[in-house]
Design a protein around this nucleic acid. Structure first.
Lengths: 345, 345
DNA sequence: TACAAAGACGAAATCGTTTTCGTTAAAAGG
DNA sequence: CCTTTTAACGAAAACGATTTCGTCTTTGTA
């Protein structure tokens, strides 16, 4: 039983397609008797209008595209969850793509998505895109007049709505907390040094150090590349200086780091305090549980989707258009991997 | 700059739409000079064909729908990842929906997806759907002639391709392992008792017990409902009998359970061995690390997508159609939460 | 010179809807 | 009885593309 169309129904009753359309949409133009007959027949053969045809006609797909760098990352999963939530509430579907941190795939994806498939787009940049700093594909996309919202991994080169985490403040707050709990030599381990996000957090770290009259030492920043041996780099770090606090810019790396530190005899948090990022299940259930900066992923997703849909539905001309950047504050979730603020060691 | 169409280009050159279409598609019918002019102009104004129009014409959207019960569950995230991987390889886009374990939302979603938006559908049933055991919405969907593949949370009421985990064997293997490592009183904690998956695992458990001449005791099965207090139920269980092995049908619950057990003075695995499900990051990094049954989520996703796309592209008539059920074996990942097989306690 | 064969392009159908504007007939009004 | 409503329906355009046929014009060939 192939999908039934208006034409089929029209043929069955010997009337025109327009009549059927009107009957199904309960138009006053059609006689009551014919209407009920058609409606019933449509119901029985579970007719439903072809969305493609409607989209083509109305120039609205009720679909928003979303490009994520990596779905296995819990932060992005949370954002996705948030986006889906409000998209669903407001009647939009999601077409989701994963760039896998690849510039090329991102470019390809934007190409596909710019050709009528979506009413709007949400994207967080691939790491490769950020390190290349090439956003011509975004510029092209903007030209297609489709509303675009960037979140988290953004770029200053593009003028559009953005939702970001206050990463500078996050780095600042985390570092402050280290200092307040008695840490003197605070290192950073970053697996995301190519991203805007990672650098901002380090800026926040520097700001805190400066305010506390601690000299910044670049050798305390461990920049982790793809196939680097964390254990080895950590050994170098700990041999270099007596570290008592490590800010890790990523949840999984923080956990791995603890797993390396423990057998070496370092006590957490007594010897070394750890603060991680992305407040996921891992941080909560690992031993010792991990103090993290929560970025409120779901909330970011919700905000992003809301901003996008608002823009889609308020069809302003390009002149009236105004772009906002929403900054979402982070929260420090204190757990066992850091010392207590009142305790002095 | 609104999105440019063939009509616009045609107007610009004073030729017909068909000519432009042919020119862009490099047809031999069009003179070389005109072709290059049109192609260049199209390129400059970054023309790309409207996918909706093409889909409508070709009756093919190159899009597959995917309905997941819960994206925050790592298993489903992995499956999603696998699906995306092969979908991308084979040129398909993903439109993704989250049922949030809700029957109603699932019904609604299938309605939307059946009206021309996707070439095929992948779905894992919501818990509510499985407990209601009402799949009329799936039957309706089948009628729409769109290929459908069910995975993991399936139903026997529907005849279609399926990819499932060998959950019975998983329960069986896990229980065997408990017994081999000296456990006598093995309990089960299941937060998914309403799902097919959960019951099959228990069947496997029973099978193993029977083979080892251990009596099945229903009071050793702790069925966790939404707002139940795990700690309390656990206390009841441990008071009831001297449990030395717990099979937990869910990763997060396994971890929570360990977190409850430890402060009560139970040593894991010496006093109580634990085996969990879903081999995620949590299991790997928690202390003690968790022995789990891996369901190979990504592989399941890949298989599912492959089967679906194969079916989409081999347009067989309904008579020639044949359905397969692929059963994916699980693997026991042994870690610290179970005793060693050679060690006798 | 006449006729066929390319060469180069356009018209129109098609996909499935909605909607505007006719058109026809019956009912209502004078 | 004639005119005007109004009820009930159909034709056609529109969305953006592809493709099958035409239809000319020009070139080639006998």
């Amino acid at each position: 039983m192939k999908k039934i169309t208006l034409k089929d129904i029209a043929a069955h009753f010997g009337v025109s397609v327009s009549t059927v359309s009107k009957a199904i949409n309960d138009s006053y133009e059609i006689s009551a008797s014919l209407k009920t007959k058609i409606q019933q027949y449509a119901e029985e053969n579970n007719y439903s209008p072809n969305r493609l045809a409607l989209s083509l006609l109305n120039k609205s797909t009720k679909t928003i595209g979303i490009v994520l760098p990596n779905i296995l990352n819990y932060f992005f999963t949370q954002v996705f969850y948030g986006i889906e939530k409000v998209a669903n509430e407001r009647g939009y579907n999601l077409i989701s793509c994963i760039s896998n941190e690849s510039y090329e795939k991102e470019v390809k994806t934007l190409g596909v998505l710019s050709s009528g498939t979506v009413d709007g787009l949400i994207i967080s940049l691939a790491e490769e895109t950020q390190s290349k700093n090439d956003v011509t594909h975004l510029e092209k996309f903007i030209k297609s007049q489709i509303p675009l919202v960037l979140f988290d991994r953004i770029t200053d080169l593009i003028d559009c709505d953005k939702v970001i985490v206050d990463d500078l403040e996050a780095g600042y707050k985390a570092t402050n907390y280290f200092i307040k709990t008695g840490c003197k030599n605070i290192a950073i381990v970053t697996p995301i040094d190519h991203s805007s996000v990672g650098r901002l957090r380090i800026d926040g770290y520097k700001k805190s150090l400066a305010e506390n009259n601690i000299d910044y030492d670049d050798r305390l920043i461990v920049r982790l590349e793809k196939d680097d041996d964390l254990s080895l780099l950590l050994t170098f770090l700990l041999d270099y200086k007596k570290i008592d606090g490590i800010l890790v810019l990523d949840e999984i790396t923080a956990v791995k780091l603890m797993k390396i530190l423990k057998p070496k005899g370092y006590k957490i948090p007594e010897d070394i305090s750890i603060i991680g990022f992305t407040n996921g299940k891992l941080s909560e259930y690992v031993t010792p549980s991990l103090t993290t900066m929560s970025q409120h992923g779901s909330y970011i997703g919700e905000s992003t989707a809301r901003i996008l849909i608002d823009k889609i539905e308020s069809n302003l001309s390009q002149e009236e258009e105004t772009f906002t950047t929403k900054v979402v504050k982070t929260s420090l979730i204190v757990r066992e991997s850091t010392k207590n603020q009142s305790t002095k060691y």
